[in-house]
Every structure is written in C-alpha cells, then in structure tokens.
Amino acid sequence: MYQSPPSPGTRRPLPQEVAVAITCNGTTQAVMMATPQDLADFAHGFALSEGLIRYLGDVEEFELVEHPKGIEARFWLAPAQAKALGARRRIMAGPVGCGLCGIDSLDEAMREVPAVKDEALRLSGEEIASAPEALRAFQPLHDASRGVHAAGFLQPGAGVTLAREDVGRHNALDKLTGALLLAGTAPSGGAVVITSRVSIDLVQKVALAGSPMLIAVSTPTQAAVDAAEGAGLTLIARVRGGGFEVFSHRYRVG
C-alpha cells in the first residue's frame, strides 16, 4: 500500500555529504564526496589505503581548509614520500558510492596487496555473531537518518572499541582506518566490522590497513573472496540472526 511521506515537521534528517579535495604538497590527488564528520580520519585513511602515505611518519603537516564549495584536506609530505608519489594515482573525481572510480590502470583495480600479518588474532563465534549489534551502539548518524554506513573495530574480549560513519561504505572504512592510524592503534589486533556487502576494494583496504579479519552483514563478491584468500585475510559475511558464514581462513574463528 502506498504511504505518503511524513510531514516536514516529523521528517528524519537527511545524510549530508560535502566535496573533499585531498591534496599532497599542493597537488590534488582526489575529490571525493563524504559525510562531513571525522574528515581528518577520512583523509588519513584514504591516503593510507591509496598509497599516498605508508605510515603517519610520511606526513609532515596536515590541515583542513574550508572553501565555499567544499573542504580541502591538505597534506604536506616528507620529501622521500613526495618524490615516490605518482606510482598510483586517481583521476580527479570519485562519487560517494564507488571505491574504484577513477583508477587509471586495470592493474591497479585488481592490485595484489601484501599478506596480512598473523598476530594470533582469534575471535569466538559469539563475538563474531554479536558484532553487528555491538556496532549499532556507535551509529548515531544512522539512528538519526537511516541512511549511512558504519565501520567498526572489534577487539577480542573488548567488543567494538572504535567506529566511524559515512554515507559511503568505502568512506566509513577509510575513516576507521584513519582513526586507528591517528590513535596509534594497531589494526592487526582486531577485526573490521562493516554494515555493507563486501567488494574487492573493501578487502584491499582492510588488508592494506593490516587487519587480519573482515566481518560484514551482507554478501561478498567472488572477487572479494579470492582477494581475501590471497591476502591471508579471514572474511566473514552474512552475519545475522546469530549465524554467519566464513569464506576464507577460518582458523581465526574459535
């Protein structure tokens, strides 16, 4: 049955997005649409996952600069990293929903990632099954708008300890990666939990960040499973109703 939309006085707030230009030493590397919270986290996570930086020491200075039509996330890199930049770059625009738009080489879209380090991370079936519900406590933007994704960091015995939200699932993951980087928290000590399906680029981002496990509420693509298998990453998906499916490297579940 058709239902009319709620009256303006009762309508939920809509998710926000803003143009974010990521620049390195004065050169624009990408312009992405993102939810305007936690943009320093977003910029650092994006820079790490796209190879603009390798670790926090590559960044000499960072600032967010507001412009009339958006926000510039401005990096000044150490000379050695500034010289190396350019091995992988993007065309200058990326819509919010896409994690591979603009890559100017098919090899980069299907890039191999370093194998994740196995630091004896183990999560029980109960911890994994309850991860999406635990993440819900960290989703105020979703509660208000019902229109954003989240990515959280699940640590053994501690539950979800950190999370970030964004209208784009890739952006939420980049925000989480950046938050971990800036906090000095090793991603190898926990699992990433996401509220979306799993595509290959999300697996690549998690592996490059260094987390050995990715937990998702929805379905992975075959390319994502293949990439997880090759990277040594435990991929768990379809987590709902107290159950889940393990698609690769199940020895970390127990």
Rank of each mutant, 00 (worst) to 15 (best):
P114H: 05
C101W: 13
L106S: 13
A120N: 07
R89W: 06
M92D: 13
L121I: 09
G97A: 00
A115H: 12
V96K: 14
L106K: 00
I103N: 09
C98P: 01
V113Q: 01
A109F: 07
L121H: 07
A120I: 07
L106I: 01
M110L: 11
V116G: 04
L121M: 07
D118L: 00
E119I: 00
A115I: 12
I103V: 13
A109C: 09
R89S: 12
D107S: 15
D104G: 02
M110V: 14
L121E: 00
D104L: 11
P95H: 12
A93K: 06
E112Q: 14
S105N: 12
V96G: 07
L106A: 10
I91D: 11
L106N: 08
R89P: 03
V96W: 04
R90G: 06
P95A: 06
D107C: 12
A115K: 15
A93R: 13
A120R: 13
I91P: 01
G97N: 09
L100M: 14
R89C: 05
E119P: 00
C101Q: 10
E119L: 09
L100V: 10
G102F: 03
V113N: 06
G94P: 04
M92V: 06
D104Y: 08
G99P: 03
V113L: 07
C101D: 08
E108Q: 08
E112W: 05
I91H: 14
L121R: 10
G102M: 06
L106Y: 07
G94Y: 04
I103F: 04
S105M: 09
M110S: 03
E119M: 04
R88W: 11
R88E: 12
I91V: 07
A120F: 08
K117C: 08
L100P: 00
E119R: 10
E119F: 02
A115Q: 12
I91G: 07
V116D: 05
D104T: 07
I91L: 13
D107E: 14
I91R: 15
R111S: 05
L121G: 00
C101N: 04
D118Q: 05
E108M: 03
R111M: 13
R111I: 12
P95R: 06
D118G: 10
L106F: 10
L100R: 03
A120K: 15
G97D: 11
R89Y: 06
R88F: 08
C98L: 12
G97Q: 11
M92G: 14
V116F: 02
P95Y: 09
R88G: 15
D104N: 08
C101A: 14
D107Q: 14
V96S: 02
E112F: 04
A115N: 08
L121V: 10
G94F: 03
A120M: 07
A93V: 14
A115D: 05
E119T: 11
M110G: 01
G94Q: 15
E112Y: 02
C101Y: 15
